[in-house]
Amino acid sequence: MLQEIILAGFGGQGVMSMGQLLAYAGLEENKYVSWIPSYGPEMRGGTANCSVTISDKEVSSPIITEPNTLIVLNRPSLEKFEKDMQPGGWLLLNSSLIDLEPQRQDVNVFKIPSVDIASEKLNNSRVANMIILGAYIQLIGAVSLESVVKALKKVLPEYRHDLLPLNRQALELGIELARKVL
């Protein structure tokens, strides 16, 4: 198993912490993991992204040039990274903010209006990223829901642990939505 994931979106959409959750969850399952952010001026204002590797083997380079999973939360990210994807990979996109159709015919696409769903069903648009992460868990199966929930406890600061149930709900919602399409 080798998951090479790029997660990208606007700063503040939670792509960095999504990536960290995946890395922690992988570590929880004794896999080799790495996480590396894009850094420098581009993290201010523009598109933020991070690369996460989850693998059965030692990670060679944490820098991912050809992801087999791409999670994009905004349109510039789709435009930037879609062309680099490995054929047969998974493209998960936030269709609440992306009104563009993916060009690639050789990848699996899962569109999810995560912001709308988060607002409607959970009354909190801020957990939109967790819905997508839930879908990732269901579609790829690289890490389990339980591992991600354990990871949440590490990534969320202690004083935010009251948000754990909400985040779990969002993850479960994403899993359910993805199950329907499979």
Binding site: V33, I36, P37, Y39, P62
Partner: peptide, 10 residues
């Protein structure tokens, strides 16, 4: 280098 500084690993 920048990779070793910026990346997270176990």
């Amino acid at each position: 280098d920048g990779i070793l500084g910026q990346m997270m690993e176990a």
